[in-house]
Nucleic acid binder design. Structure first.
Lengths: 210, 210
DNA sequence: TAGATTGTTAATCGATTAACAATC
DNA sequence: TAGATTGTTAATCGATTAACAATC
């Protein structure tokens, strides 16, 4: 019943994790079924939009009943690609890199941090939550020995493109970028940005909005 | 010449920080003028969109010339509300809270972290980059003594709404939310979300896209 | 002046909302 | 069966792109 994901719009795609969050909460609170109307109230969307969104991927509901929470959650789990495991490395073991390494929640979803890399001799050899910090010189050999799917860029922005180029050359196809710049990458490499300063500027913009 | 910000769409608003980033880079590299066409190539937008975006706020360019980089950057600086200072507190002094406190770049833009708050006795009394960690019990009295504009929520998601309610009651009008849930707040309180897991799920989605 | 590029209007495209037949 | 709610088509709305007169 599930359709192809190829032509899902950016807007729909960005709502999927939110659906997943709400359905996880509903399931946890023991709720078995939910209608698009009920979900629309909780999430602040329209029921129409919710049905349109789900029907990009297949008909997960049942007329007169609604959606089975657990089934729907499971479908979205699959849609998000969370049935597999992703091996990650963190480039830059500063504040942000260390915070991400310490954050254990990603592991529950199958995102495994295999190592951190830095240029700073004081950090190299350390370990964070049991995850070693390697010399950035070992980057290429490490990737060739371990199957790394995602590189998390936590370097200063001056070094971000350089390290991105290096991991792309090694065949890494996913980049989670925390540096305050846009990364250039070939079409088959997915770059997802977390621009914290952009987010803070947006907050500032809206607070000073007249 | 500058227009009202009231009816700026979400889409335009989200592009403003990106313009600010690119203009800052251009100014740093000593480039004086830029046309919408040149900027469109660099940023991967259309020239038309760029001109439309800027004209939401006023006519900052000059026919036949383009835009003066430094002037335009300064205009966007104002538009983003970065001419003032924001006092912030961080709620939750765990990984994320500490990482944000250690990150000095926000201060350059006038976002000053006045304190962290936690429930954990081991953290209370510590200081991070000179910024004290207070007992969460002191939250209300601290806010009443200091003019706090923004609360950064870095608590576990179970506590997020509770601490949000407390700071809102004290008159805080801006919330930067790092917890993996949506915060309920009155209309005059601005909530800006950084949902890291949503971002990671989106990356996963696009990597497994068929 | 001639060339370049804006600001702005009109046309297009895509996303959201509304409506309703299908059906559980 | 009657009531509820989906899946889907049609209508609307808003955002992006194209075009061009204005003008530096």
């Amino acid at each position: 019943m599930a359709k192809d994901k190829s032509y899902v719009s950016e807007a729909v795609m960005r709502r999927m994790p939110k659906y997943y969050r709400y359905l996880t909460d509903l399931e946890k609170s023991g709720i078995e079924r939910v209608s698009s109307k009920e979900l629309s109230h909780r999430m602040g969307l329209t029921a129409s939009q919710i049905r349109q969104d789900f029907n990009c991927f297949g008909g997960f509901g049942q007329q007169g009943y609604g959606y089975n929470v657990s089934d729907l959650r499971h479908e979205i789990h699959k849609i998000l690609g969370l049935t597999r495991v992703y091996n990650m490395i963190i480039l830059g073991a500063g504040n942000v890199g260390q915070a991400l390494a310490n954050y254990t929640n990603f592991e529950k979803d199958g995102f495994i941090i295999k190592g951190l890399f830095d240029i700073n001799p004081r950090l190299i050899g350390m370990s964070i939550r049991g995850i070693p910090v390697y010399d950035i010189d070992e980057l290429e050999s490490f990737i060739s020995k371990n199957e790394i799917h995602i590189a998390v860029i936590c370097t200063p922005k001056e070094k971000a493109q350089e390290v991105a180029d290096r991991v792309i050359r090694c065949g890494v196809k996913g980049i989670w970028n925390f540096a305050a710049m846009d990364i250039n990458a070939p079409r088959d490499t997915i770059v997802e940005n977390v621009h914290l300063s952009d987010s803070l500027y947006t907050l500032s913009f809206r607070m000073s909005d007249d």
